[in-house]
C-alpha cells in the first residue's frame, strides 16, 4: 500500500496550465492555473458553473491533455503523454468517482470493483478489494447488478472501486451531486476516512459548500483562474466565498 509518508510531497502539481477546447469559440476554460495539492490530504475544488473546475480535474487526472503548461501527477509529468501511455499512467496513479453513471451496467458489483485492475492486466488484489468493499458496507451485495442498487450504494461501489486500485490520487467529480442528503453524507465520510485512515490523497470537484467543508483545503476557481485557497474552512465560510464569486 502506498502511504504518503512525506506529507509535504505534492500529489498533484499544476504549472501555468491552460486549456482551450476546439470549437469552443476560442474562450479558454483554464487560463494559466498553477496549484499544488499535497499528498495524503483531502482537497476540494470549487467555483461557479463554467469556472473551469471540471476541466482542472480532467487535466490533473490525465483525462484531458492541457493546451499549455505542465501537469505532474505523483511526480510524473503527464502533460506531454499521448495514448496509450497516458492511459497507463492514469491506471497506476488515478482512481475516479463521477457524479453518475459510474458503473458498467453489464457487470456485477464485484466485477466492477476489479475491472480497472483487469483492464490494467494485473492480478487483482482480491483481499484488499474485499476489505474496501467491507469499508463501504457492501460486502453483502457483491453479486448485485448496478441497476439493483440505490444511487448512494452505486456511488459507494464507485468509491470502493477507486480505492481497490490503490491509486496515488482519487479524483471525484461532484460525487454527491446526484444523491440525497444522507447518501451524500455517507460518501463524503468514506472519502474522509480514506484520507485519515489510509493516507489516501483525494481531489474532489464540487459546487456544494457543505461537501467542500469536509476537505482539508479548498481551491476556488473563477473564470479559469485560481481565485483563492483556504485551509480547514467551515461550510459557512465556503458559502461566503462562493456568494462573492458568483456575484462578480
Amino acid at each position: 500500500m502506498y502511504l504518503a509518508s512525506d506529507s509535504a510531497a505534492a500529489a498533484v502539481e499544476l504549472e501555468d496550465v491552460s486549456k482551450t477546447y476546439p470549437g469552443g469559440g476560442g474562450t479558454p476554460a483554464l487560463r494559466g492555473v498553477s496549484a499544488r495539492l499535497s499528498a495524503g490530504t483531502f482537497s476540494a475544488v470549487m467555483g461557479p458553473s463554467g469556472s473551469g473546475k471540471s476541466t482542472l480535474l480532467n487535466c490533473a487526472a490525465g483525462l484531458e491533455r492541457p493546451s499549455a503548461g505542465r501537469v505532474r501527477l505523483a511526480g510524473e509529468d503527464i502533460g506531454a503523454l499521448r495514448e496509450p501511455a497516458l492511459t497507463r499512467a492514469r491506471r497506476r496513479r488515478a482512481g475516479f468517482v463521477f457524479q453518475s453513471f459510474n458503473l458498467v451496467p453489464a457487470l456485477s458489483v464485484w466485477q466492477n470493483v476489479l475491472l480497472p485492475q483487469r483492464l490494467a492486466g494485473v492480478r487483482p488484489d482480491r483481499r484488499w478489494a474485499d476489505e474496501v468493499l467491507a469499508r463501504v458496507g457492501l460486502s453483502g451485495r457483491r453479486n448485485a447488478r448496478p441497476d439493483q442498487l440505490s444511487g448512494g450504494q452505486q456511488q459507494r461501489v464507485a468509491v470502493a472501486r477507486a480505492l481497490a486500485g490503490r491509486p496515488q490520487v482519487l479524483f471525484a467529480d461532484e460525487p454527491t451531486g446526484a444523491l440525497d442528503l444522507s447518501a451524500g453524507h455517507e460518501v463524503l465520510a468514506l472519502l474522509r476516512e480514506a484520507v485519515d485512515e489510509l493516507g489516501q490523497t483525494v481531489v474532489m470537484v464540487t459546487h456544494d459548500p457543505a461537501a467542500a467543508a469536509w476537505a482539508d483545503q479548498v481551491l476556488f476557481l473563477a473564470d479559469g483562474r485560481v481565485h483563492s485557497s483556504l485551509q480547514d474552512v467551515s461550510a459557512a465560510e465556503v458559502a461566503a466565498v462562493m456568494t462573492e464569486l458568483s456575484a462578480r
Partner: peptide, 12 residues
Amino acid sequence: ELALLRTLGATP
C-alpha cells in the same frame, strides 16, 4: 459506457 471504460484505464 465506452468513455467510462476509458476512465477506468482501458486503452483505445
